[in-house]
Design a binder for these strands. Structure first.
Lengths: 230, 230
DNA sequence: ACCTGAACACCGTTCAAGT
DNA sequence: ACCTGAACACCGTTCAAGT
């Protein structure tokens, strides 16, 4: 293997550099991350890092991908609702484990859903729900957008119970024009992000079921109805 | 007014700097943006910029806020579904108008929904849907996460019809393990982002209506039923 | 051939000097 | 007092010299 040879030649491995870079980024965040710091961390020349990765941008891309591989994607079950939730929870867990790396996904996985395996599960789940293909593709991507958006918001510090400072800010708003905000203040103070995530996935799933049901009724080719009413 | 005085004193206004900074960021993007470039653009010293904004980070925060103000938020209608859609479309429009600035919202509006007015509309819509307050707050934030996630994905180049390169990549996957992905390829090639966004908002709305309906049935205080079946 | 050091152009910010 | 220039510590990358 020529790969083994090039490994033997030098102690500095590309994968070692990536590991060090990932760890640095994961702990200090993007603003404090630099190629040069990775280099001193490994005791090598900054240019050695760039020789392996071409540019800082390529290194960041590699860090983003390395992050994705750190989460185990679920396998298919018999229940499409559970499958959607499993994929959603997997990405949310990823964001929780590596909140500073997570934003990179949006920047560098811009060509499609982050992982083919997970998107396959999502697409399959939506087809199993009874949705026609024309809807399943777009709603699959929309589900991704929701999950990643939720996880990103959490990683950036949004979507947690509001603190006393924010409460005071909202209290200061005009009570009449902001009456709904005012009314929800007590709930916002004790908001549980995990429960909120579950709730919103349930909403999405219920909406999909509703849409799938409508489509099925419209074209009653094989109308096995699990609803209570005929 | 002391403000007018300080204006007269010097030609260089804080708002002028912000305008120039916003335009630069909006056109060249974050990686090519710098405080120094803003300075040369205005013919002033780099330190003059920082004197007004404290730090680059504060300037970026100001750019993010300035972006938000460039979109007119909708006013309340009689239909909570339309109100949700209107807010969603407003943010999506913002992302379309300023795709490079848009990612800053996630980084700097981390303390809550970007705009109090729009979040009030969202909260009010969800309360009008019949949801209890305990659900309305979290689902309001989840709706934000979805809308911003979708808009961000679009701004970053995701969520558009796939090109020939991506098609080839997906075609190369094992047809059996990726059979749903394979089946949806024709749809993914002609995906319409606007229609997809509308569809997914409809799904969310249908899910909310479903949940609100269930809650109402559980506590039948005022059970006016619009369903076909008793 | 693969790797890496010096040099370059640039960056945000400190700090003291200017008005 | 408000503003700004010089200086500092750092950055990613080019490029030619090392092995």
């Amino acid at each position: 293997m020529s790969e083994a040879k090039s490994r033997a030649r030098r102690g500095v491995e590309k994968s070692e550099i990536l590991e060090a870079a990932f760890d640095l980024f994961d702990t200090v965040g993007e603003s404090a991350f630099s190629v040069r710091k990775v280099a001193v961390l490994m005791g090598i020349d900054p240019m050695t890092v760039l020789h392996h990765f071409g540019s800082k941008d390529e290194l960041l891309r590699a860090i983003a991908e390395r992050g994705l591989h750190s989460v185990e994607m679920p396998t298919e079950s018999q229940n499409w609702r559970d499958d959607l939730k499993a994929v959603g929870n997997a990405y949310r867990l990823l964001a929780h484990n590596h909140p500073r790396v997570f934003p990179l996904h949006f920047r560098y996985n811009a060509t499609g859903p982050a992982d083919h395996i997970s998107s396959e599960i999502v697409y399959r789940a939506l087809r199993n729900s009874g949705l026609p293909d024309a809807s399943a593709a777009g709603l699959g991507l929309a589900f991704y957008a929701f999950v990643l958006g939720f996880a990103l918001a959490e990683a950036e510090g949004l979507l947690k119970a509001i603190g006393t400072a924010e409460e005071a800010e909202l209290q200061a708003l005009d009570p009449q024009t902001y009456r709904a905000t005012r009314a929800l203040l007590p709930v916002l103070k004790t908001l549980d992000p995990s429960a909120t995530f579950e709730d919103s996935m349930d909403v999405f799933i219920a909406g999909v079921a509703d849409l799938a049901n409508l489509r099925q009724r419209a074209t009653p080719v094989m109308d096995f109805d699990t609803q209570q009413c005929a």
